[in-house]
Structures are given as structure tokens and as C-alpha cells.
């Protein structure tokens, strides 16, 4: 596959994965959050996660940072289309970042 086609196909595939993620991703907590819930006593090791279980994040004395697009979303108003846009934006930022950094550090092809 030609290089330009590879990049285009790769970006399209990444965006399709992102769209699938918006609609199909599991709402269950990830491994770290699940372990935190077990430690808190809100979940057993092998049991299901109760729907109302939340990880206690004690932010007192900790650094806190408000990300511009928290939880891969543009906010409730935008709903799922906003989540798709947020992921697409992230994918494009990744591609531009790699090409940008490579321009600075990678040697030209012989």
C-alpha cells in the first residue's frame, strides 16, 4: 500500500474504532478502578460492579487539573456526536504530533 494511502486508511480505521467505542464501549470500570472499588469495599474481587459504585478520589492536597475535553466528550449538550468529534480530534492530534516531532528529530530518507 502506498504511504499516503496507508496514512489515510489508518486514520479512517482509527476513526471507525473511535465511533465503535462511543457506541459499544463497556461502561464497567477498568482494572485500576475495579481494584480501587474492591479496596474501598464497594465490590468483591470477582463479583459484578454495583451500578452506583464510584471510586473515591480524595483530591485534598493533590494537584488538580481540568482537561478541556474531559471523558472524551464535548459536554452533555453535544452527546454522542460530541464524543465522536472529541475522539476524531484526538486521533488527528496524535497524527500531527508524530509528524511534527518526527520533522524535528528524524533524519531524511536516503
Amino acid at each position: 500500500m502506498e504511504t499516503r494511502a496507508l496514512v489515510a486508511a489508518g486514520i479512517v480505521l482509527a476513526i471507525l474504532i473511535g465511533i465503535a467505542a462511543v457506541f459499544l464501549a463497556s461502561p464497567d470500570p477498568d482494572g485500576l478502578e475495579s481494584t480501587a472499588l474492591v479496596v474501598q469495599g464497594d465490590k468483591t474481587l470477582t463479583g459484578d460492579t454495583p451500578p452506583d459504585a464510584r471510586v473515591n478520589e480524595n483530591s485534598e492536597g493533590q494537584f488538580s487539573y481540568e482537561a478541556p475535553l474531559p471523558d472524551y466528550s464535548l459536554g452533555e449538550l453535544w452527546g454522542r456526536p460530541g464524543e465522536i468529534l472529541a475522539l476524531a480530534a484526538g486521533i488527528l492530534v496524535m497524527v500531527l504530533l508524530i509528524f511534527g516531532i518526527s520533522r524535528l528529530v528524524v533524519r531524511p530518507a536516503k
Binding site: G10, A14, S26, D30, G47, D48, L87, G90, I98
Partner: peptide
């Protein structure tokens, strides 16, 4: 590298269920 980075970024957003109430 760019395609790999974009793909890894996208797929990291795709949580799949793995039983035990975890994804």
C-alpha cells in the same frame, strides 16, 4: 508510527467487558 499512534489512541478508548464487573 503516526498510524500506530492514532490506532492505539483510538483503541484505548474502546473498553471491552472482561467479566468480574470490569472492562
Amino acid at each position: 508510527i503516526a498510524v500506530l499512534a492514532a490506532g492505539i489512541f483510538a483503541i484505548q478508548a474502546f473498553n471491552l467487558p472482561v467479566a468480574m464487573g470490569t472492562s
